[in-house]
Structure formats: C-alpha cells, structure tokens
Write a protein that binds this DNA or RNA. Structure first.
Lengths: 127, 127
DNA sequence: AGGCTATATTCGTATGTACGAATATAGCCT
DNA sequence: AGGCTATATTCGTACATACGAATATAGCCT
C-alpha cells in the first residue's frame, strides 16, 4: 500500500503530484468535474458562493425534497468540495475551495457565449 | 473585461440568459461540466491548450485506441468545446473556448490542494 | 476503380448515478 | 424517556455513458 504521503510538511505541489501518476491526476480531476456536472449541485455551489447556508435554506432555495438535496450534499462532501459546521441540530455548509466558484463562472460564461453565438440553440430547442 | 460577441447585434448576455430559465442554465452548465468529467477528455484538452492537434497526435499522446479517442472527441464536439479543421485526410482539433483551460487549471489546483492537505489520500488509497 | 490512410460511427455490455420512497440518526426540548 | 425537528442514509429503478469490437466514411494516390 502507498502510505508514503501521509504527513509531509515540506513537499511542494510538484512533488506531491509526482507521487501520483499523471493518469491518476486526470482521474481525480475528472472526479471533481463530475461532482460539478449536476444542475442541483451547481445551484448549491451558487447558493454557497457568498457564505454558509443551512440545509433547510438550500432545500427552500432549490425547491427539491430534503432527502434529495442531502444526497447531493453528500456527493459534494465526499468530493471534499464543501465543509460543514453544526450548531445544535442545524448544519451549515460552506465551500471548501471558494475558487470553485471561478471555475463555475468560466463554464457558465462559455455557455453564455455558446448561446449568444447560437451554437447551443439547436440543443435547447430540441430538448 | 468581456467583449460582447461580435455578431450578436442587440442582445447582451443578460438578455440571452433571461430567455432561458435559470434551471435550464444550470442544466446546460452541468452538461459542459459533465463533458469535462472524464480523464481522457481532460487530457485531450491539455493537449490542445497550446494549439491544434491532429487525431493521430492525440491518439499517440494519450495511448488509447483511435476509435476511443474519436468517441471522446465527438463528445467534446457535441458540447461545442472543440472545433475542427480538415487538411486532406487529416483533421485538426482546437479548443473553441481557450478559457476552458483556466477552468481546468482551477479544478486541478483544487485537487493539488486536497492532496497536499491529505484530504484526498483516503480516496486514493482505497481506490 | 481499387487500395491505403485518417477518422468517425454503431452496437453490445458493464458500470455509474439521480431520483423517489422509506427509514435512520442526531440533537434539543419538556 | 418520549416527541419534535433537522439532516442523513438505504434501496430499487430508470437512465446515461465508457469501453472494446467491428464497421463505416472520406480523401488521397497510383
């Protein structure tokens, strides 16, 4: 088993990346992207971009069943993209990496560009 | 500073977005992210980040079968993320939106951050 | 035309995942 | 303890998709 990376204070990113094969990097990066490839989770991230939200707030804002929102929160948690804080029975969610919002903004901007060029209209009209 | 798309005479991005429901925006944005959520396609994008590549070059660089690479190129094409140019029997691929590279860099940076924090190690070791 | 090369598509299958429904856990309150 | 609220998990099913294998298309060349 590879346990070598456990607690290494001095290693820089290149060193860390070197311990993992390039294909593993792509695979893990793809996992992060897959986590972003759901409309509900994108909406959750949008809700969290300015700070914490409770699950109830997310359920209200998104308009899906609580269990379903919770499922998506579990996916985001497992991907390490959100963190939680408990206060009594209420759980607050926040983004682990606020930079994720920038990545989403880029993809949304690309979508807007596609729409304004009309290259996406066919897909929209046929769906 | 975003330059408005050259041949869309009147509509600005907000107007275009308004014509589509917010949930449709999220759905389409999720489609773009889903296109990025495959290791092979991320590698293709990486190969295209500095300019055009032929299919053969991609096949050689990636090391998968031609048919498989071509399938992934079809996914990227259908998502509108790549454009092609033909020269004789050779087809050159390029990125439609070079900004996609930035989005990928952000997700990769998040992954590196996760790895350096150790929050991803469990996932790596158990996979 | 026929053959060669470059690239694309179809088909079958195995695997992943979103959703609804139901159930479970956890903390607070009286 | 029991009940109430907030959140999480499990299960079944329907649907999507990546891959390999095989086949198809398209352009060049002699």
């Amino acid at each position: 088993m590879k346990q070598s990376i456990t607690n290494s204070p001095v290693e820089n990113q290149a060193e860390i990346a070197d311990k993992i094969s390039a294909s593993e990097i792509y695979r893990l990066q793809a996992e992060i992207c897959r986590t972003l490839s759901d409309p509900v989770r994108l909406q959750i991230i949008d809700n969290l971009k300015d700070g914490e939200c409770t699950v109830s707030e997310l359920v209200d804002n998104i308009g899906l069943r609580q269990a379903n929102v919770s499922q998506h929160l579990a996916v985001l948690r497992q991907a390490g993209l959100v963190l939680t804080r408990r206060q009594a029975t209420t759980i607050y969610y926040r983004l682990s990496y606020p930079q994720i919002v920038e990545a989403c903004q880029i993809t949304r901007q690309i979508l807007i560009d596609q729409l304004s060029q009309g290259s996406r209209l066919v897909a929209i009209n046929t769906l």
